[in-house]
Design a protein around this nucleic acid. Structure first.
Length: 753
DNA sequence: TACCTTGGCGCC
DNA sequence: AAAAGGCGCCAAGGTA
């Protein structure tokens, strides 16, 4: 196997994109190749490489680098032919940052090359002079152009580059051995292929209907202000009466809490505290007396004297004295509507109560005060419009480049191995509320193309069925049983499943349809590990009913219900002390950060107010569970002070969720990775543009839609084939997908072959 | 000024 | 005794 370490040094634009490929003005100015730690090749081009490779990859099988997607996105967006050939012949990548993230069971996120250099090679970090320049936004373009002027700096730069070339090779070797030993080699290979595919996805971008975005932004902002004004009018009438209060701020938790439950609002008041000392006014008067001053004339080399009048300063009065102000904090009591505290709960800050959606709903349904009811509605509406305007429309306008969005996919961040998306985050664009349609209709297909969305149905449930090997759950999934109705039947035992199915799905009886929605909520909450009291709180279902659902669920799907027990056993069995070097530097900072003591982590101990403290006798433990794909999930314990005694435990809820969420992420990853070569081969017919956990977004050319979708469907659904090839694992069933097609991502219809 | 923490809310 | 998982973004309020 021929491996090659690859790294680039690039310019850094001064736009919001910084050093990213997203900014067209950025380019590669240095390329670093290392096939062997001792033979590092560093090539510069002071005019930029125009995003093209400076070498051929014809004999390379594996590209190695640290945070490779950064470099590869330049080549991909530069349409480099060498690189395309490399992919088509089955070339792979090994990203040392990604590998480290997986090897540490998603503990070490965004590791730096320097951290790994120390971890694996025990080498202290080299001169950070160049990193300093980068931080100051002095990019490789400037350094390379200054190569003749700043010889010493350039020598340092080349040394930095050589190290960036050789270090990943050495780290790769160590990681490879470790991965083999820990049964993670195939997983790391697969996730690297996934990340490589995502590099392609993020380079493709999503087309926006900019006119629609701009119009919606205006409209949403106007509506936000309109509702806000109405809300303010109600408050001014009732509770926001004190003239010293600032205008009611709908984004301020302090204001909202005070208006409903009462409280104090801090106001900075500028008060006059006397006067400044008046400034004297002088007049300058010539006295008629002169002095002689001697000067030296350097050109003629002689001295000369000058006559200078003596001026006297005479006080003629004072300026008007200026008033002196000082800021005072004053606390204004707001009586509020006097809503009972039982509708809400205490926030962390003294005297502050939560005003979130659930609280507001509770108030709105129980209050007899019409003003309160109207206020609740107005507050909600105003906030929703603000959110839609700022978080989505405004962000789309700020982030788009020539009408396209290029989301950033973070592959080395989450605890469970899921992807995260940012700048902008396209994984949380409103879908269910009234903005869902309009926001999604902004994502459009280019002319001649269709929008295609392929979703796994109930992915995490299928994963649970597979991992727990629960015979009944598998049977129910395969024969298409509606699991929500199964749960509905738990507490409506006078009816059969068939009767309930008819009521909900055939007759669409509103009462039973609503009941099914409750059961559905319970289903999701159970999947997240919620316990009966919490479920009661959020669904309004009777505690006894919820308890019944939990009990019957455990009796019905015995193995599925017991699955987390096995995970917990593994955590206990594998538990060791949490090591400082697996915690990224960024998480060691701040009040809520990990508290490291030497090489180990200290146990966070929470008191009843959830304040954290540490003592040097209690070290934190960490245990893990390893999935069939090799994925490791880590679980940290925490302490609790109770009646002077320290109780420490691992979370009960995380083991109920991490394995399913993470394995679902593996399935999403493996199926996306399986598309890579096809996406490169058929880039004029199929383009992948986004992923949202269990769904994949594409553009597909209209004239080849049917064929392409067939191909996509069979590739993605056939998880057993992929898992057998990649992991030598037998998965007993396909994972069904649903396909939707449309002109934009709002108006989609189910695709029938 | 820049950073951190919190509350709130959007998604799966 | 009690326990709803995983994210990112905006805005406010506080602190260094």
């Amino acid at each position: 196997m021929h491996v090659l370490s690859f790294d680039t040094e690039t310019s850094i634009s001064d736009s919001i994109h910084g050093p990213s490929f997203r900014d067209k003005s950025n380019d590669i100015y240095t390329q670093i190749f290392a096939a062997h730690p001792k033979t590092v090749e560093v090539v510069h081009n002071e005019n930029g490489f125009k995003r093209k490779l400076a070498t051929s990859l014809y004999d390379v099988d594996l590209l190695i680098g640290h945070n490779l997607s950064f470099d590869l996105c330049y080549l991909i967006s530069g349409q480099d032919e060498q690189f395309e050939k490399f992919i088509l012949k089955g070339g792979e990548q090994w990203d040392t940052q990604l590998a480290e993230y997986l090897l540490t069971g998603q503990q070490h996120t965004f590791s730096s090359l320097a951290e790994l250099q120390f971890k694996y090679l025990k080498q202290k970090i080299k001169s950070d002079r160049i990193s300093y320049l980068y931080k100051k936004r002095i990019g490789a373009d400037k350094i390379v152009k200054a190569r003749n002027r700043c010889k010493r700096l350039f020598a340092l730069y080349e040394e930095y580059c050589r190290s960036d070339g050789s270090t990943p090779l050495l780290i790769f070797k160590a990681q490879y051995e470790r991965a083999k030993k820990e049964g993670m080699l195939e997983l790391i290979k697969m996730v690297n292929a996934y990340a490589l595919t995502l590099s392609y996805v993020s380079c493709t971008g999503i087309c926006l209907d900019l006119e629609k975005v701009e119009n919606s932004l205006r409209e949403f902002n106007l509506k936000h202000i309109e509702y806000l004004e109405q809300a303010r009018n109600i408050l001014i009438k009732n509770v926001w009466t004190d003239k010293r209060l600032p205008p009611f701020n709908i984004n301020s938790p302090d204001h909202k809490s005070a208006a409903l439950f009462g409280g104090t609002i801090k106001v900075i008041e500028k008060r006059q505290v006397g006067y400044y000392k008046p400034k004297p006014i002088y007049e300058e008067i010539e006295t008629g007396i002169y002095t002689k001053e001697e000067f030296y004339d350097a050109i003629n080399d002689n001295y000369y004297t000058v006559k200078k009048p003596i001026i006297k300063r005479q006080l003629i009065g004072f300026e008007e004295s200026k008033p002196k102000y000082k800021n005072f904090e004053i606390f204004i009591d707001v009586k509020g509507f006097g809503i009972p505290k039982s509708f809400t709960y205490r926030a962390k800050k003294e005297g502050l109560y939560a005003t979130d959606d659930a609280v507001m709903k509770r108030i709105a349904t129980h209050t007899k005060n019409e003003d309160v009811k109207t206020y609740c509605e107005l507050q909600k509406k105003s906030m929703m419009f603000k959110k839609a305007a700022k978080t989505y429309c405004q962000a789309f306008l700020d982030r788009n480049i020539d009408g396209k969005l290029y989301p950033h996919f973070n592959t080395t961040l989450t605890k469970t191995g899921r992807l995260s998306s940012s700048e902008p985050n396209l994984q949380n664009v409103s879908k269910r509320n009234e903005f869902g349609k309009i926001l999604h209709s902004m994502f459009v297909a280019p002319k001649g193309w269709k929008c295609v969305q392929i979703d796994f149905s109930q992915l995490e449930i299928w994963v649970l069925a597979w991992l727990s090997d629960d015979a009944l759950l598998i049977k129910h999934l395969l024969d298409g049983t509606d699991l929500h109705i199964v749960r509905l039947q738990y507490y409506n035992s006078d009816k059969t499943y068939e009767e309930l199915y008819k009521l909900c799905k055939v007759d669409k009886d509103p009462y039973w349809d609503k009941q099914r929605t409750f059961a559905k909520t319970v289903s999701y909450q159970m999947a997240y590990g919620a316990m009966p009291p919490k479920v009661t709180e959020s669904t309004g279902l009777d505690l006894e009913i919820v308890k019944t659902i939990f009990e019957k669920e455990a009796q019905t799907y015995v193995d599925a219900a017991n699955f987390s027990v096995k995970v917990r056993e593994s955590i206990e069995k594998t538990a060791t002390y949490s090591k400082a070097y697996d915690i990224p530097a960024s998480e060691k900072r701040g009040k809520n950060g990990h508290n490291v003591f030497g090489n180990v982590e200290l146990l966070p101990i929470f008191d009843k107010d959830k304040n954290v403290c540490y003592n040097k006798q209690s070290l934190r433990r960490v245990g893990y569970w390893q999935s069939p794909t090799g994925m490791k999930f880590h679980f940290l314990d925490s302490g609790r002070e109770y009646k002077g005694k320290l109780n420490r435990s691992f979370s009960f809820t995380q083991p109920k969720n991490y394995p399913m969420q993470g394995t679902a992420a593996n399935i999403q990853g493996a199926t996306t990775a399986a598309l890579l070569r096809m996406l490169v081969e058929k880039k004029d017919k199929i383009q992948m543009i986004n992923e949202v956990h269990d769904s994949k977004w594409f553009y597909v050319r209209e004239d080849v839609l049917d064929n392409c979708l067939k191909h996509l469907k069979t590739t993605i659904e056939n998880v057993p084939k992929i898992f057998l090839e990649k992991f030598n694992l037998e998965v007993p069933f396909n994972f069904p997908v649903e396909i939707e097609v449309g002109d934009n991502f709002a108006e989609m219809t189910k695709y029938q072959f």
